Amino acid sequence: MIEENNFTEEDVYEITHSINIYFSDNTSESIRIEYDSDFIDAVANIELGISKFFSFEDSNYEIHFISTENIGLIDIPLYLYKEQLQQFFDNE
């Protein structure tokens, strides 16, 4: 697939490290995160009802702080999710 589509190394990195957040106002944002991001902690806090805000740091060290009321969908590559989840459990 990589060769067929002429993906560069940067393209592959972007695909495997970007999440897409779709907001309830029909807008969206693509954000690049790293493996050691606190993204999965933010997801867990929302799932467990600990927080009503989705906050995490992206690969540019910019902090995102988003109310869950404004989020319609969070799309994350499965590979990145599994890596994040493994780190989460390793740190427990």
Results as ranks from 00 to 15, higher is better:
N45K: 14
S28L: 08
D58I: 03
I19A: 02
Q84L: 14
R32G: 05
F39H: 00
F88G: 03
E29C: 08
I66H: 01
M1E: 14
F89S: 14
Y13T: 09
I50N: 11
V43P: 04
E92V: 09
F56M: 08
F56D: 04
Y35A: 07
S28W: 03
D11F: 08
F56C: 03
I50W: 06
N45V: 06
N5P: 05
R32F: 08
H17M: 03
H17V: 01
Y35M: 07
E47M: 11
S18Q: 01
K52T: 11
T8W: 04
N45D: 15
F56A: 02
I76D: 01
Y81R: 09
F89M: 08
K52I: 06
N26W: 10
D41Y: 13
F65V: 02
K82I: 03
N70S: 12
G49Q: 11
F89I: 11
E4I: 04
F23S: 05
E3S: 13
S28V: 04
H64Q: 10
L85T: 03
D36W: 10
L80F: 02
Y22I: 12
T68R: 05
L80N: 00
F7W: 14
I19N: 01
S18V: 01
V43S: 08
T27M: 07
I74Q: 00
T16P: 05
E69F: 04
L85S: 13
N91M: 12
E62K: 12
I2C: 08
T16H: 05
S37R: 08
I71M: 03
Q86Y: 11
Q86R: 11
E83Q: 13
I21E: 00
N91H: 08
G72N: 15
S51R: 02
Y81H: 09
N70G: 05
I31P: 02
E3K: 13
A44V: 15
R32E: 13
E57Q: 12
Y81C: 06
S59D: 15
I19W: 01
D75T: 02
N20K: 15
I76R: 01
Y79H: 06
E83P: 03
Y61Q: 14
T16M: 14
D38N: 15
F56S: 02
S18G: 06
I46T: 05
M1W: 06
E47D: 07
V12I: 15
